[in-house]
Design a protein around this nucleic acid. Structure first.
Length: 224
DNA sequence: AACCAGGACGTGA
DNA sequence: TCACGTCATGGT
């Protein structure tokens, strides 16, 4: 049950991922900033993480990218603009990310929440984030980890898929069970949590989108 | 041309 | 609590 070993193998395979991708970062083409763990530093970047975390729910990041670019072009990538826009106009801008009616509503609730916490200069608790309509466990953890540098392990479908395939999970565990498994078996370090989640996504995109998963498993089991 | 993507919510057992 | 339906576009 050495999750740190798996992490080290992933890191040696791919190197630092530089999550969360931000449009303000020109480190790489798609906003990744490998090795720079200081981001986000600005309110604008923090909000963009909220937006990305919500828009990417059950959605390919490629589509989220298009939606965020639409928001930027419309000068609507701010919590204030998000609230001021009519919901159907906001929905139109984020259409490429799918579920656009739901997500427009989610963004407006999140924007309201975000502004309140920025005014207070306060980091929202996990429970506070979970009280937002449209923010579930994974989204809350992603926001806490990447927007506020809080040590929350983020569990997604890829995490379940890889670690079920490797035999660490049966496959029917609850989110909280999986989160606990990782947090109990890893040092509680924000940077580690950021990279691990990003590396899981990277590796899964490569080897776990279609069965069989043997190649991906071997890369993590074999000598690294 | 099915199938899936960095989920969450509402509902009825 | 749990299982299932709903939400929806774009890439492969």
């Amino acid at each position: 049950m050495d999750l740190l070993l798996i992490y080290n193998k992933l890191f040696s395979l791919y190197g630092p991922m530089g999550w969360w991708p931000l449009s303000s970062s020109n480190a790489t083409e798609n906003g990744y900033h490998p090795g720079d763990y200081s981001l986000p530093k600005t309110i604008e970047d923090r909000w963009e993480i909220y937006v990305g975390a919500i828009l990417t729910q059950n959605t390919a990041w490629k589509n989220v990218r298009i939606a965020i670019n639409n928001l930027i072009a419309a000068k609507a990538l701010s919590p204030e603009a998000t609230i001021q826009l009519f919901q159907n106009n906001l929905a139109e801008l984020i259409k490429p990310s799918g579920y656009y009616n739901q997500k427009a509503k989610k963004l407006q609730f999140a924007a309201d929440f975000f502004i309140k916490y920025e005014k207070r200069k306060e980091i929202p608790t996990r429970d506070a984030l979970l009280s937002i309509w449209g923010v579930g466990e994974e989204t809350a953890d992603a926001i806490r980890l990447y927007a506020y540098h809080q040590p929350e392990f983020v569990v997604d479908t890829y995490t379940k898929r890889i670690f079920t395939s490797l035999g660490y999970l049966k496959g029917d565990e609850k989110y909280s069970d999986i989160k606990k498994l990782f947090e109990d078996n890893l040092p509680k370090e924000t940077t580690l949590f950021k990279e691990f989640h990003a590396l899981i996504v990277k590796h899964a995109k490569e080897f776990y989108s279609k069965k069989p998963f043997g190649v991906g498993d071997q890369l993590l089991n074999g000598k690294g």
